[in-house]
Amino acid sequence: MRDYLKLHDDNSGADPAVTDALRRAYAAPPDDGYWASLEARILSRIAEGAYRIDWWDELDRWMRPALVAAAVVLLAAGIALFRQYQVEQQTAYEAMLTPAPSALPVETAVRPVLQESRETTFRYLMTP
């Protein structure tokens, strides 16, 4: 790269006649009146534009704080989700380690009224 830069120093390859023609072509207006007029137009433009709300500029102004706020919200949401995930994992793990409760004793009983009713029906049927 350094060799390249050395080969192409500021004056290499410049054609003096073309450079002169360029300078004439791009010469700034020499008249002081022109510059006074341009200055007045610049200041006039600023006076007009200073109060005009440029929405893109406004958006641009709010862009950075908005991005920071969005990043903070995303970070907080991420942390909350991660904590929730951790709690769920811990609960599931503990549930797995806890032995399942043994079968509960089942008590069966025959309703006396029902039994009596069935016997009564049976007796009725069997009675000649």
Binding site: E39, A47, Y51
Partner: peptide, 9 residues
């Protein structure tokens, strides 16, 4: 800055 308009401040 006689030729220039007054800036808004």
């Amino acid at each position: 800055v006689e030729s220039a308009p007054t800036l808004p401040f």
